[in-house]
């Protein structure tokens, strides 16, 4: 099937990028050592990976309910509001301005960044932090990813929004699908076209960059590389007509919160906070009855 072909290409390209980056930035020896005593590392990672798995599981299990809740009960279509705000603030919508720079080179570059660059940006730090002597950077990263995803999903329940390509039909070109129509097979698998506010592409990329800055002593070279990639991903989401400027701002904001959660808390802290909220809630209901 065509989807398999798209996936195969993705795995091949990103795999090559990861291999190169691992050799250059991590070093084969450091990586090999980490793999050889991976047992304790994996055990250390168990709680945070478990949390991520739970979030993903909830997402998969509630897919149908979530769509119904989103469209019929909780969701509010905020597309007109976003468009209105941007119309008031800017003389010309930033997406239209970016697309006016369109060239074939830029098209290829941003499509590459949006698909391959993004996946690489998310996976490489996992490998890099796994190879460190301590596991706290990796568990912060995974926790921050989880926070991004969980908060993002809750936002999507409340905000139905379509990207600029779907509303500004005359002025904005759906460049991603025009340059690379098969990409739709992939994006359909992982997302709906109403999930744009906030931009998870932006928030996850910026999260990676924030953590790269936080770990700059370990991987100094990763700071400029991840910075360049994250900035490119952010611009690509707008250049390709997928996200509004507002989505990007919300995404950066979400990245800040998620990185803060990832760096400050551990899964243990979070479960304690959860438990105390739950017991306070129980007391409150008990007092009322």
């Amino acid at each position: 099937m065509a989807l398999e072909a798209v996936l195969r290409e993705l795995i091949f390209v990103v795999g090559a990028m990861l291999l190169t980056a691992t050799v250059v930035l991590v070093g084969p020896r450091r990586f090999a050592r980490a793999v050889s005593d991976s047992r304790w590392r994996l055990r250390r990672m168990l709680p945070v990976v478990g949390l991520l798995a739970i979030v993903l599981l909830i997402r998969v299990a509630s897919q149908n309910v979530a769509i119904r809740l989103q469209f019929r009960v909780l969701g509010r279509n905020i597309t007109p509001d976003i468009e209105r705000i941007e119309r008031t603030v800017f003389a010309e919508n930033p997406v239209i301005v970016l697309q006016s720079l369109e060239t074939e080179v830029l098209n290829s570059f941003f499509v590459f960044i949006y698909l391959y660059g993004y996946v690489f940006l998310l996976i490489f730090p996992v490998i890099a932090y796994f190879s460190l002597k301590r596991m706290n950077a990796l568990s912060s990263l995974i926790l921050a990813f989880t926070a991004n995803y969980a908060i993002g999903l809750v936002c999507y329940m409340f905000f139905i929004a379509y990207g600029p390509r779907n509303i500004l039909a005359i002025d904005v070109t759906p460049l991603l699908y025009e340059v690379y129509p098969q990409a739709r097979l992939l994006t359909n698998e992982v997302n709906q076209n109403t999930n744009v506010f906030p931009s998870l592409h932006t928030s996850l990329s910026v999260t990676v960059f924030i953590l790269a800055w936080w770990t700059r002593d370990e991987y100094p070279l990763w700071v400029p590389i991840s910075g360049f990639l994250a900035l490119s991903v952010v611009i690509s989401t707008m250049y390709l007509g997928i996200h509004w400027f507002s989505d990007v701002i919300a995404g950066i904001f979400l990245a800040g919160i998620s990185a803060y959660i990832g760096i400050t808390y551990s899964v243990n802290d979070l479960s304690q906070i959860g438990r105390s909220i739950l017991s306070r809630f129980r007391n409150w209901t008990a007092n009322r009855s």
Binding site: P80, I160, N166, I167, A169, I170
Partner: peptide, 25 residues
Amino acid sequence: AAMIANRLTENLRDAGIDTDQSAID
């Protein structure tokens, strides 16, 4: 459909009518 809606919205705005455009699946 989206382009016609887009054009109509712009024209209504040009005619001084406060108009929003909305899309839904």
